[in-house]
Amino acid sequence: MQYIAIGMRLLIGVVFLASAVSKIMGRRAFGDFTTSLGGMRIMPPSLWRPAAILVIASEFAVCGLLAFPGPFTALAGFLLAAGLLAVFTVAVATAVHRGVRAPCRCFGGAASPLGPRQITRNLILVLCAVVGAVTAPMTGPLAPAGTAVAVFGGLVWGGLAVVSDEILDLFHPIDKAPGLARDSR
C-alpha cells in the first residue's frame, strides 16, 4: 500500500505543479486564467482575481504538502487535493450545464472547451487523491525496486493527466478539432 501512496503523491503532485506553474508563467498566463474564471460564469467579476490567486496558492500548497516526507503531511495534501478537485469538478459541471464552451485553462492555454472530459479527468483525480489519503498513513520498509516503479508510474500517469486534453484532441476529426475553423467551401 505504501507504493500506491508514493505513486499517488507523484501523480497528484505533478498534476497540481503543472497546473499552478502554467497559470503563473507570465502576466498573460495569469490574466488568461483569471479571465477564464469569468468566462465560466460562476462568480461575479469582483471575485475573479482573488479566486485565481486562491486557486494557484492552494495548488502550490498541495505540492508542498505532498513533497514533505511523513504520512500526515501527505494526508493533508491528499485531502486538500481531493477538496480542490471536487470544487473544480462542480465548477466545470455547472459551467457546462449552463452551456459555457470557454477554453479549459486548467494547464495553461489549452484550446479544448470545457466539457465532459474535464469533469471525467477531475473525478478520476479525486479518486486518486482519496486512494492516496487512505494509503498515506501506512508505514513500513520499502524495497528500492518497488519504490522506483511507484515513482515512475506516478510521474507517467501524472504527465498523462496533464496532457489528456491534447491526447484526446488527436482523436477528433480535423474539421472538429478545438481551435480550428471549418472550411466554408
Rank of each mutant, 00 (worst) to 15 (best):
A86G: 14
E59G: 05
D165C: 08
G70S: 13
L11M: 12
I53K: 02
P141T: 14
V92P: 04
P113W: 10
A81G: 03
M40F: 12
G99F: 11
V131G: 07
M25Q: 14
L37Q: 01
P44K: 14
L10R: 02
F88Q: 05
S164W: 12
R105C: 04
G70E: 12
C128F: 15
T120Q: 11
A181W: 09
L142F: 09
A177G: 03
F152L: 15
R9P: 04
L54H: 03
S112Q: 15
V100Q: 13
L37P: 02
P141S: 15
V14P: 04
R28M: 09
A61M: 06
L114D: 05
R101G: 10
G140M: 13
P103N: 13
G70H: 14
A18S: 14
P69H: 09
I174Q: 13
A81H: 07
E59R: 12
I24Q: 09
E166S: 14
L37G: 01
L84N: 06
C63P: 00
Q2A: 02
I4E: 01
A81M: 07
I167V: 15
V21T: 13
R121S: 02
A110M: 03
A74L: 03
M40K: 11
L54R: 09
G115D: 14
A51F: 08
V55P: 00
G39I: 08
A129D: 03
A74S: 14
L84R: 02
I4D: 01
K176W: 02
R27G: 14
K23H: 05
V134K: 04
I56M: 05
G13S: 04
F16W: 01
R117P: 02
F88K: 06
P137I: 01
E59F: 10
F33M: 04
V156C: 09
R49P: 00
A74Y: 00
G39W: 06
H97A: 15
V162G: 01
A82Q: 05
A93P: 00
L17W: 04
V92M: 00
G159E: 02
A51H: 10
V156W: 07
V156M: 12
I4P: 00
C106N: 05
F30D: 10
A145N: 03
Q118V: 06
I53G: 07
A145R: 13
S36C: 06
S184V: 10
L85Q: 08
R9Y: 00
F107I: 10
F33T: 03
R49M: 11
P69M: 07
A76W: 02
P45E: 13
A86K: 01
A5Q: 04
Y3L: 10
L75E: 12
F78P: 00
V151S: 01
I119Q: 05
I174W: 10
E166V: 06
I53D: 00
P141N: 13
L142D: 09
C104I: 01
Q118A: 07
I53V: 09
G26N: 11
V55C: 12
M25I: 08
G31L: 05
P173A: 15
V62A: 04
G26V: 11
M8R: 04
A52S: 09
I24R: 09
T89L: 07
L155A: 11
M25K: 13
V87S: 08
I42K: 00
C63H: 03
L80C: 06
A29F: 12
P141F: 13
T35M: 07
L142W: 07
H172E: 14
A86W: 02
A81W: 12
R9V: 03
K176C: 08
V151I: 15
R121D: 08
L11C: 10
E59T: 08
